[in-house]
Amino acid sequence: MNIGLSFREGLAGDGPRSLTSAVQERLRADILSTRLLPGQKLHIAGLAKQFSVSLAAVREALSRLVADGLVQASDQRGFRVCPVSLADLADVTQTRIDIEGLALRRSIERGDEAWLSSVAVAWESLKAVPHRYPDDPTVHYEEWVVRHRLFHRALVNACGSQWLLGFRDVLHEQSERYRRLSIRREVGRARDVQAEHAAIVDAVFARDADAAVRALSKHFGTTREFVELAAPRIAEVNGTS
């Protein structure tokens, strides 16, 4: 199949309105899924050929991803996927706990019954699909990833602040890269993600903001622990081993 042709054909439906936006979203997806690895060089000419778009469209898409913290730009070395590190992981995790914890607390205080219903729907939807592929536990089940993102967003949607939600979304994307990298490298330790989510949901339904934030913090902290356990193997894809 011609990748560039199929990419352009995808714009005819409900996709992004411009080629630049389409390239940006494709690259974003590849970075978050770790198909493009941390530290990997991003060659403008090669990407333009792959997507059958202009050099300018690729350059603009990459510049937008720089603003999102997913790509690095250097006058001398061009563009590359942002690297990962344990220091960055700690920073992302704690900041996400602070920002998303505040958004969750406000949502519990301000959210109405419609919001609680939306949380219930997102929770049931998430539980309906497996966390990993049964025949390959080192790979996320893709539909779970989509529903997981919607579930965590539903929890904070009633916070009443678009700025808070915007910061929260950026941090979620940064965390997603680390989670994807860690699950690709088994660490020999079991984790009950559904139980972690259930603890958050139970506290939300009980309107117990303190308990909900504690459960959310523990959930994010556990993700950090698993990433740290996989760190030696993650370093291999980051060029730091």
Rank of each mutant, 00 (worst) to 15 (best):
L155F: 03
R191P: 04
F226H: 13
L37Y: 09
A114L: 12
W144E: 10
A120D: 15
A22Q: 05
V66L: 09
Q24D: 09
L102W: 02
E236I: 12
D135V: 11
E109P: 00
A211N: 08
L19Q: 12
A57T: 03
R77F: 13
G15Q: 06
V170Q: 13
I183S: 07
Y133F: 07
A122N: 07
V145A: 11
S74P: 04
L5P: 00
E143N: 07
D169Y: 01
Q174W: 12
G78D: 03
R96N: 07
R110Q: 13
R35A: 10
S182I: 05
A198I: 00
N2F: 11
H219K: 04
T93L: 00
P83M: 00
R77E: 15
A103R: 06
Q194W: 06
D112V: 01
Q40M: 13
D75Q: 12
W163V: 12
V53D: 05
P232C: 06
T20P: 02
A120H: 07
R189Y: 04
Q194P: 01
L216C: 09
N238E: 12
S107D: 04
E124R: 14
E225L: 05
V121H: 11
V66P: 03
D68G: 03
L216H: 15
D192V: 10
D136H: 06
R59S: 14
P130R: 09
A209G: 07
D75K: 14
P83H: 03
R207K: 15
D14Q: 10
P134H: 08
G10H: 11
A211D: 06
E236K: 13
R26T: 14
L164Y: 08
R179T: 08
I44Y: 01
V66M: 07
A22I: 04
R35S: 08
H131G: 04
S241A: 15
V119Q: 05
V23L: 04
G39E: 04
E109N: 02
G78R: 00
G239M: 10
L32S: 10
A203K: 03
H131Y: 11
A57M: 03
V156G: 10
R185M: 09
E100F: 10
I234S: 02
A12L: 15
V193N: 02
R8M: 06
I183L: 14
